[in-house]
Write a protein that binds this DNA or RNA. Structure first.
Lengths: 155, 155
DNA sequence: AGTATACAGTTAATTAGTTAACTATTAGGC
DNA sequence: GCCTAATAGTTAACTAATTAACTGTATACT
């Protein structure tokens, strides 16, 4: 029979990761909406990658964002519906779509990035920079530990 | 015009929080399913609270899990459909439902807790305990920072 | 007492994630 | 060259989150 004192829910890593990621994502969505930008935080993750390297396939975007190819379908649907990207069939491999930023998609990048930075600054307010670096190091290790269990998914 | 070198996506706190929480949640769901337990990680968060204190209202569960009252509706629907909890109208306040564990809900607690512990151990494998504590301290600060922006939601 | 306000829960529409099953195209082995 | 494998994308059914609008009940004020 497990002891109740064994579980410190408020301080559990799993709970804290869920809560912090959710609050940050929600607040970023609110900042985007408040600025009149019709993009969500998840769509932003795609847009920022395309800003670095335009014309990637859905599969490549999936790999870079750790999302499944299935998730990319709806995400690109949404981005296309809002006129931020366009799907272009790859002439050399007709299975693939290449995703390109539209002028509208390019034009909102600066605002999106500014708001994302504001959000990050708000999240880390009062946190010692060295402790933050340490925390990020731990999270990267957690990511490596869990990615192993995820092999052979999303393929 | 923003500089691309300004953004270190792989090491951004927001990205890492999303990725780690998602991988941990996914893997916990897989562990539950592999053990033949028909509960999800989000349902588990409700069950563990009820194990500590049974008969809470949906509103109380929402507050303890940082979920909205709307989220609780479907979550409790799912738990009830699987026979793990039952809704009981509160006789002293007919607006409220009190949520009670069923014998079936109680019976799987030990297994769920064991698997959650295994999942946490896997996530933190090779992480210095002191660094983990430090990381959790940072995450709790981030939570406080972001919770402020969330005031007046979910009420 | 009676009205207005607050509160608990629900429903509907939207976004985003999962797994499983499917289509179409490319690449490899014989 | 041909048939099998793998790959890219899609669809369908499900879980879970959001906001907005609504029902019914309790509380508070005058």
């Amino acid at each position: 029979m497990p002891e109740k004192s064994d579980y410190d829910l408020e301080n559990s890593l799993g709970m804290l990761l869920d809560w912090t990621s959710q609050f940050m994502r929600l607040e970023l969505n609110r900042k985007f909406a408040a600025a009149g930008l019709e993009a969500t935080s998840e769509q932003w993750k795609i847009l920022i990658i395309l800003w670095f390297e335009d014309g990637l396939t859905q599969q490549q975007l999936a790999e870079k964002t750790f999302k499944s190819k299935v998730s990319l379908v709806k995400l690109v649907d949404g981005l296309e519906r809002r006129g931020l990207v366009r799907r272009t069939p790859d002439p050399s491999d007709r299975r693939s779509n290449r995703i390109f930023l539209t002028p509208k998609g390019t034009s909102i990048q600066e605002q999106l990035i500014g708001l994302a930075k504001t959000n990050l600054a708000q999240a880390t307010r009062g946190v010692d920079p060295q402790e933050l670096t340490q925390c990020i190091k731990v999270l990267k290790r957690v990511l490596v530990n869990m990615k192993g269990s995820d092999s052979e998914q999303n393929e």
